[in-house]
Design a binder for these strands. Structure first.
Lengths: 347, 347
DNA sequence: CTGAAAGCGCTTACAG
DNA sequence: CTGAAAGCGCTTACAG
């Protein structure tokens, strides 16, 4: 690899001049510039990144944003929000000539995580932490906070870590999905929740209740059943609901897999969807919503946009310590056959 | 940020001694080592990566592997092999304390690509290039070849670029899928191909033909129809096939979306699957194979393993220039209801 | 417009 | 076992 010095010698100029040319500074005469550029081409000179960074000291950027996932990527299903956030973030960094660096947490033991090297040596200009609905973030956030690298948390709202965050608004989405069921004409609406120890599951339940109350319906606790996001748990929750519940009714289900289980039970029980019962899921998992009959209405979270906004926050982060803002992005309702008795339930 | 020199002054030792401690070299007395470590802790010293890399010159590793995708991630569907290769690669680099750096190609104009900075400045120790079935790789491979960074190509076999490659064996997989249809008892087997200008589509056709010939069947060109991987094109190709084809027969379809279209046409034409016709897809797209009735048999490529093998090749790459090897990984047959007349086609 | 020189933070022979 | 010193490749005031 050629160095500045070698180029300078060959061109018969000083290293300063070569440096100026390389960095596109204007104050170099035409002929010298020309000569230097030719030699750079011929020798395939590439600036030494490390030397440059060293010289520019702390002003030096790495032009990299780290993405910290709560587990190795292989652990996530292809429909996971993790991939969608990464795709959005990549789109956003690209325009600014940044790269994404992937690092993942490896749980070693109870609450002990192996942190990727990325976090330690100031190798990135900012870190985007992806959280899951369930993840305990205390340890991680604690470790990260001791570094000076800017951080932004992406994912589901949970405990307040006093970190800049881009989150999706679970409560509002649940509120709107429940409202949609009521508006579709179902006189009462039940819900199947996720594990209520998860902040996001609790938030979805709050949104559901709010919609009922605002419409003059008294929240009836026999209409609330808890699942664990699995298809089986959704089926069992639906069976329990059917003990008290007679059609017509709506069910807001806090996850698409559970909703699929619920639909199966309704079909087996002879309850016609959407005529006698409307079902609304959550997460808009492509291969679930397309595989049910009728197609499942669901809540779609804007995860790509979460990634994009997190990056633009990191890249614009002022060095002054302003209070960490929290952005809550709204979700979109995808109304399909399962909750739409007026639109022809066959599609 | 504290520097070695500051730590040395505070500890009353020379910078050499601090450097030795930081790098875990043994030849330092216990008490000095102790003192230095304490001060490093207290001052939260972090070694300057750039200085280290600069000093170690070319021996310095970046501990990063670049992943070059043929387009921004946002352009790929969640079922894309791109995500699966990345997940496998991440798993592999993790064990060696490496990171993955994401970079993507942006087609600017006809054959002109904007190359990510990652490729230019020796910022990574190796580059994993992901190709698609259709991608023209000439330009990219040419640009990359002029750098000294080791490269490995991942994806579908195509033109021979004389690069180390980890590919999936399309031909063999097509051969096996066709054979499976014959073994299931379908006396003749047709095929719906992808665009035959794609090397991978052509390879799948070769595999199909080989299976026929080996079983004493004369390749009949009226049994070959070309599609473009879309569901619609699969439906139309199936319609064309049905002009000459009477049950029982099998169809090897070179893509799951086309297979779905074909299944729809068979159902509409009153041909029962798998009793009268067997269908085998390709790619094992989760939300397609699960949504058809009966469930679609398909070929599953080991993309995670492709990523893993590519990384282990890059990390073990000898500096001497041996001929670039090419690894062809076999695919797995996922036999489901659509091609299995004996297993009860209802599942 | 151009060159000589200092120095970024670190590692590494080289003496002691 | 320990320290003084050179130098990695670059940028940047500073003189001219």
């Amino acid at each position: 690899m050629a160095t500045l010095k070698e180029i300078a010698r060959e061109a018969g100029v000083s290293v300063s001049t070569v440096s100026l040319v390389v960095n596109g500074k204007p104050c170099v005469s035409q002929d010298k510039r020309q000569r230097v550029i030719e030699i750079i081409r011929a020798r395939k000179y590439v600036p030494n990144y490390a030397a440059r960074a060293l010289r520019k000291r702390h002003a030096a950027r790495t032009y990299a944003i780290g993405v910290l996932t709560p587990a190795p990527l292989i652990a996530f299903s292809s429909s996971s929000h993790v991939y969608r956030i990464i795709a959005g973030a990549e789109q956003a960094v690209k325009q600014k000539k940044y790269h994404l660096v992937l690092g993942s947490l490896e749980p070693l033991a109870e609450g002990i995580f192996h942190l990727p090297r990325m976090l330690e040596a100031g190798e990135v200009d900012g870190i985007l932490i992806i959280s899951t609905a369930a993840l305990e973030m205390e340890k991680i956030v604690g470790s990260v906070a001791s570094f000076s690298t800017p951080v932004v948390l992406c994912g589901y709202p949970g405990q307040d870590f006093n970190l800049p965050s881009v989150l999706i608004d679970n409560e509002k989405a649940a509120y709107e999905a429940t409202l949609a069921l009521l508006k579709s004409g179902y006189p009462k609406v039940a819900t199947i929740t996720g594990p209520l120890s998860y902040p996001s599951a609790a938030a979805r339940l709050r949104g559901y209740r709010l919609a009922l109350v605002e419409n003059g319906l008294f929240p009836d606790e026999t209409l609330v059943e808890e699942g664990d996001f699995s298809e089986l748990s959704g089926a069992e929750a639906m069976k329990r609901l059917l003990r008290h519940l007679t059609p017509p009714f709506g069910v807001f289900v806090a996850g698409d897999f559970m909703a699929k289980g619920a639909l199966n039970v309704l079909a087996a029980s002879g309850v016609r969807v959407p005529e006698q019962a409307g079902v609304f899921g959550f997460d808009d998992v492509e291969y679930v919503v397309q595989s049910t009959k009728p197609a499942l209405s669901s809540v779609r979270a804007p995860w790509e946009e979460v990634g994009r906004q997190a990056v633009s926050y990191l890249l614009a982060l002022p060095s002054s310590g302003t209070a960490p803002p929290t952005i809550m992005l709204p979700c979109e309702l995808k109304v399909r056959g399962s909750s739409n008795p007026n639109g022809g339930g066959s599609c």
